[in-house]
Structures are given as C-alpha cells and as structure tokens.
Design a protein around this nucleic acid. Structure first.
Lengths: 236, 236
DNA sequence: CGATGACCAATTATCAAATCTGGTCACGAG
DNA sequence: CTCGTGACCAGATTTGATAATTGGTCATCG
C-alpha cells in the first residue's frame, strides 16, 4: 500500500474514533465499532495503532495539532501573539472550541474516562510543561515578564491560574453569566497582570523572539506528529 | 438534659464523626460506629442531627467555623488583613492545614466522597459567594480594588484563580517543589496583582472598613453556627 | 504481501441472594 | 414525665458465580 493511501486510511480511523468518542464516551467505544465505521476490519486498526489507548491518544494529539498550527500561524501573522496573555487567550478559546480537548482539559470523565489519567497523556503534559518552561525563559531573558516571583513560583502560579479557568466552570453551577469570549478576556487580563511587564513591547524585539518561539513550537509539533500515525508496513 | 450537656454531647458526636471520616473516608463511616465511638446509642445521634448527611455537613461547618474565627481575629488585630491578597493567603493556609477542609476544597473524593457534591454543600458555597460579592462591593466602593475588569468578570476571575490554586496540586504530580508557604505567597501575589490597586492603603480607611467587613463575617458566621447543632429536645 | 475476522484470555456486565445500614419508634430507665 | 436506647424494617449495597464482551493476535485468504 502506498504511503499516502496508508495515511489516508489512518485519518479515516481517527475520524471514526473521534466521532464515536464524542457520541458515546471513551469507555463505550470498541475497536470493532471504530473499524466498522471506518469501513475496515478490526485487525487493520492494529496495523496503525499498537493498542486501543494509543489510538485514542492519537485522536487527542491530532486535535491538539490543529490548535498548535493555529498558534504558530497567529504568531507569524502578528508577533505580539507571543505575549503570554495573548497565547493564554488563544489556547483557551482553541481548547473550548474543540470538544475533545475541552473534555480533556476539564477532566470530563464522562467523555474521556480513564484516558485523561493515563500515563501516555502524562508524557504529553510533561513535554508541554517543558515547552512553556523554555518559552518563559526566553521571555524573561528579554525583559518581557515580571520577576516579582521567582521562576518556580511563577510557573506554579501560571499553571494554577490556567487550571482554574479550565476547571472552574463546571463548579460554578450556572452562578455566572459570562460568555466564552468574556471568560477568555478575563483569563488574558489575569495573565497580563500577573506575569507581564507594563508598557508596549518593542516590535523589533517581538519579531526577533517570534522566530525563536516558533522554532520551539515546531520542535514539539514534530514530536507530536510522530505520535499520531504509525509507520506503513514494510517501512519499519 | 441541660443545654450545656446537650451541646457537649453534640461535640463528642462531631469529634467521633470527624475522626472516623479522616480514618476511613465518608463512605465507610456508619452512624452506628460514630455512636459507638461517641459512647452513646445510635438513636441519640438522631436527636442531634436529622440525617447522616446533616451530621457530616455539621462536621465540615464546625471546621470552617474555626477558620472563620481566625479570619475575624486577624482582621481585628490588623485591618490590613482585609485586603484580598492577605485574606486569600490566610484562607489558603487555613484550609490546607485542616484535613477535612482540604479534602473538600480539593474535591478529594476518596475522603469526602459524595458529600462534596451534595446539595447541602451548595447552599454553603452559595452563601460564601454572596459574602465575597458584598465584600468586594465594599472594597470597590472605597477604591481598594481595580476596575479594569467589570464586577462579574472580576468575581469569575477570582473564583477561577482560587479554584486553580486548590486543584492544581494533585495534577502537577510531583513536578514542582514549592512548599505550602511559597504556594500561599504565590496565590497572594497573583491576587494582589490582579485585583488590588497599587500603593499602600490609608490605615484609617482600613480601620473603618474592618468593622463593616467583620460585621459581614459575623453575619455569615451566625448562619453557620446555626447549622452545626440541632436544638435540645423540648427546646423546639 | 496486506487485510481480515475467528479465536482466546482476560476483563467487564449481569443478577439474585445475602448483607448492611440509615432512620424510626416502642419501650424501659430514671 | 422525659430522654436514651437498640431491635426492627425497608431500601440500598455488596457479593459471588455466571454470562457476555472485547482488546489484541495470527493463521488464512485474496
């Protein structure tokens, strides 16, 4: 089978898995049903993904990749997008607009079930943490973030703030009336007030940083792409 | 039975319930065992608390009351304690230092189980929300908090930030090395940066506000006290 | 050579019997 | 008379043995 046909079939499998997960939740979706919906035999699924877990992890990764590409494009279009509050806002909106990612971030155990707590997710989260670590290192070097908190404390605070914005909604049972955009704006304001310095950053500096930061993103992107599809038979 | 003896017995029941909940978790604790540990008969428990749920709710409320009194005392001792970042810090340390409250705030379903999601807790949370609403109203009137976010957005952000600091720990599986104090400091810094205005507030203003705010606290305190014990027989 | 579905071990769903427990209340102690 | 108690009951929960499902493999076939 040609590599392009192989990849196309992999996409069909991922499409099927994504649809079924959204419809019935992770726990209820069987490999058999995914195969059926993709119009192939069950064994064929295993030519693409070593285990059930790997398949659904790939679904999540593929969804994340879309958001990733959006981030890169946005920074390329406007380097000011690399500022923490702009990124936080964009990620928030991007996650909330993708049902699978939203389920993962809000620990929606009904849709994603155990998958969200699996070890394989941990590696992704860890890599993402490393990325933001390097990213804030860069921003700090160039005087774009505050230093009133030391680095571990600042990272911790950033993690806590974002965790909070992703998890608070289900807990405030209808007690607030903020639409998606307002919540994203609130998050952006908080992040800006907490970690960014006052004043408008130098556009030249931003442009220079943009390329470096995009390089970081691309690096992680490659790791993630590798995680989506297996290799075609005979190729390994 | 004298009222004081009645109340003392109620405390013994609460002590027993608290100890057993911490030892075995909400789900596994039976009224029978609570009664046995308190050295009384099972029926007697029901002279104090209408239902099992009410009993454990009272345990939680009693624990909260301790923290509440600490808050009031702190503001009385130093009116600057009424500033949001000081309060957030104190509440955080107070909650983390009380196993039952910590379990509730961190949604530790192993210890508290379903109780944390019960409706009766919701009323408490709602009252607490009302309190913070009025509290921030007061602070706003006197120019102590920012207005770069409108009130609903600011309340939402505050809720999200605090939610985050209470929930992020179990998610960052050992990936950070911040002790309790540092985390509390980080929370305080975030809150100050996000909702307080720059500069040192006028001590006279703080003193004047302190009494009003303490009045608010006392008001909620009374509601909570009423929720701890039932009334002695013949008294109702 | 790649795709497939029959096949297997192991997990998970089912369901009735047995056990437990929240809540009541008739009774007995004082 | 009042207050405390534990036997009692209905409903919920656990148990355990059985049946059904399903992740993953691989001999077979096109």
């Amino acid at each position: 089978m040609s590599e392009s046909r192989y990849l196309e079939r992999g996409e069909r499998i991922l499409d099927a898995a994504a649809e079924l997960v959204l419809r019935w939740g992770y726990r209820r979706v069987t490999i058999d049903e995914v195969a059926k919906l993709a119009g192939i035999g069950k064994g064929t699924v295993y030519l693409h993904f070593k285990t059930r877990e790997a398949l659904f992890l790939a679904v999540l990764i593929r969804d994340s990749l879309g958001l990733f590409d959006q981030m890169i494009a946005a920074i390329q279009a406007d380097p000011a997008e690399l500022l923490p509050h702009r990124q936080a806002r964009r990620v928030y909106l991007g996650v909330m607009g993708r049902p699978l990612l939203r389920a993962m971030f809000s620990r929606d155990s009904d849709v994603l079930g155990a998958l969200a707590h699996e070890t394989s997710i941990a590696r992704l989260t860890e890599m993402k943490l490393d990325l933001t670590g390097e990213l804030y290192g860069l921003l700090r070097e160039h005087g774009l973030v505050r230093t009133d908190l030391d680095i571990p404390a600042q990272q911790y605070a950033l993690g806590a703030i974002q965790t909070g914005f992703y998890l608070v909604d289900p807990m405030m049972a209808g007690k607030h009336e903020l639409d998606l955009e307002s919540r994203a704006d609130a998050l952006a304001t908080v992040i800006r007030n907490c970690v960014e310095v006052a004043g408008t950053p130098d556009p030249d500096l931003l442009r220079a940083l943009a390329s470096k930061i995009i390089a970081l993103f691309e690096q992680l992107r490659l790791v993630m792409v590798a995680g989506v599809h297996g290799t075609p038979p005979k190729g390994d």
